[in-house]
Structure formats: C-alpha cells, structure tokens
Design a protein around this nucleic acid. Sequence first.
DNA 1: GCCAACGTTGGC
DNA 2: GCCAACGTTGGC
Length: 179
Amino acid sequence: MAKAGKSPIATAPARRKAAAPLPVSTGFWLLKSEPDAFSWDALVAKGAAGEPWTGVRNYTARNNMKAMRLGDRCFFYHSNEGLAVVGIAEVCALAHPDPTDDSGSGRWECVDVRALAPMPKPVTLSDVKANPKLEKMSLVTSFRLSVQPVRPDEFAEVCRMGGLDPKALQQSSALKARK
DNA sequence: GCCAACGTTGGC
DNA sequence: GCCAACGTTGGC
C-alpha cells in the first residue's frame, strides 16, 4: 500500500566515489623542476610562447594545474640542485591533455607557462625554512609535491625575500598584453 | 576496503 | 648514495 509508491531507485545507487574537488586558485603556485631537466633559463629561452608543463603524474599536482587560471603566478623552484625559487612564471594556457602522456588514458594534463621575471636574489629552501612566516608553505610541509599552491601572503613574503619589486612584476606582465 | 610491498621523489 | 616521505599497486 504505502509501499506501492516506493521505487527501489529511491535508494541512491552506489555511485563512484566523487572526484576530489579542485582546489580554488589563489592566483599563486609553485612549480618544481630539476634544472638538469628543465631550468629557469630554458623557460626564459622559450619566450612569450612559453612551454607546456608536461610530465606531471601525480593526481594532486594535476588537480592543482586544472585549478590554474590564465595569468596565475608560479614560483619556479629548482629542485635537486640549486634548491631555490629562481623566478616567476605565469600561466599562459589552461590545463589541456599532456602530449607526453602515453598511458592512453587521457588522464594527465598540463598547463603552459612562460617566464615573467627572475628573482633578483634566489630564495633558497633553507631561507624558506628559516622564516617562521613560511612554516606552513607547501614547500616545507609537502615537499614532494611538484605543483603546489601558494598563499598570497607567502607569495608576497618570498618576493620580498628575493628582492623582487612587485612593480617590476607588473611591468613584465605588460609583455603579455603586447604579445 | 585494508594494508604491506614497492617505486619514486628529493633533501641531505 | 642514503633514506624518509608518501603515492600507488595488488593480494587478500
């Protein structure tokens, strides 16, 4: 009777675990690269066209890239050798399939980035670790993650430590308007 | 769905 | 080159 109206469908079917929501872009990120593989100078050499940030095979890192917006700022960090933030890049193409993904799954994506400004004074990992204002930075807390979110206050602090004049940064972004 | 084994990353 | 951290894989 009362049962008649109840469809078995009323019980939600077991569904695939929802994908983790993408992080919200703060506008600031950090990209790691081993300078032997792809250095800051190599990115500078690519000029305004920039370079696809390929080869990321970690879901958290990929999701961070998917959350990136055009014009987002990315610290360029040299891992393994150098161990320092050496420049700032900007996102110049939203996430798209990674051309180096040969898994056939279409799972991996990349953004394109281009060099915006070098750090006048590279900010080393030990500089970052020594600064209490940066103790929550992913570079310290999730050091293995290759594409990390950066908070605006962290971005400002690292710029300050690197002697980077925010005005110089704005000036460089005029480059992109010119394109 | 748990968890041990394994592989990779990256600082030291 | 070592090893800690940690993501992924696969057996159960």
